[in-house]
Amino acid sequence: MPIRNSPKQTDFISRPQIGVGLRKTHYPYLETKPQTSVGWFEAVSENYMDSEGRPLHMLQLIREDYPIALHGVSLSIASAEGVRPEYLKQLKQLKDRIDPFIISDHLCWTGLQNANLHDLLPIPFTDESLRCIIKHVDQVQNALGCHILLENVSTYLQPPDSTYTEWEFLKALAEQSGCRLLFDVNNLYVNAKNHHFDPILFLDAIPTELIGQIHLAGYTDMGTYLFDTHSKPVYPEVWELFSRLIARAPDVPVLVEWDDDIPEFPILEAEAQKARQIWNDHHGRTDTESISTALLSSGA
């Protein structure tokens, strides 16, 4: 049943555009219905898809006051075996319950259906992969009745036989499939360091009209590579890239993620405020003006 009396996309007009990830650590705090400065929450779809318990009740409670984006980790859109019908069915049911303004997942596969690794695994950037993913995007968007966003992921190796760069692949995918991109600036930076390319090349190669959302998070330097842990504040280098991106993409919803060593909610809020400040530095207009545009163009 759709949620009644909850904020719709147009309600964003009265809210700032920066969101944060919804994590169970913060349920007790959010349950008290505090005033927050965040404009929306992003919920991990799988945490609510197969549950009628407290997590779903909490999501519905928060949905009464905030717009929600659903962000999945198990769609496995790049799996050669295809997308699981039962997964799509559950996701559609959650969509109908929550009325999210964005549904997203990752540009990756997660494992074989009989041996799932539950990880965001790298794909070869080939024509075959592109054809496979375009077909799956079409299937998913038809099943859900809306556009989806796909996120660039951090990787620690490059699979064999790629014939595209990552940014060429992302651009081709969005242009040919009709999905939009969830542009994770931290993942871009991690991959630039791990795979030795200039992040600006990547950043500037993606037309902003293909970007439907931006993610920010912190990585961990493992010594021999950077690891996407979401366990730290956003690094200065990532803020710099974000600043360059937001300068030409003023109307894109932005989200700060923090998944490990999660701090108190006000610290997470403060991190979101940094993103807002950078946005203000560039555009010098109120958040509310930009958000109305964002919502009109989000199209989900």
Partner: peptide, 29 residues
């Protein structure tokens, strides 16, 4: 057949780059 085509990230060796995923999967589960 897999390792011969992989380009490892950072300064990792090919087996170590695969081990990041193997270890991550075991830790996650």
């Amino acid at each position: 057949r897999l390792t011969s085509g992989i380009t490892p990230g950072g300064t990792l060796s090919i087996p170590d780059s695969l081990e990041v995923y193997r270890r991550g999967f075991i830790v996650r589960l």
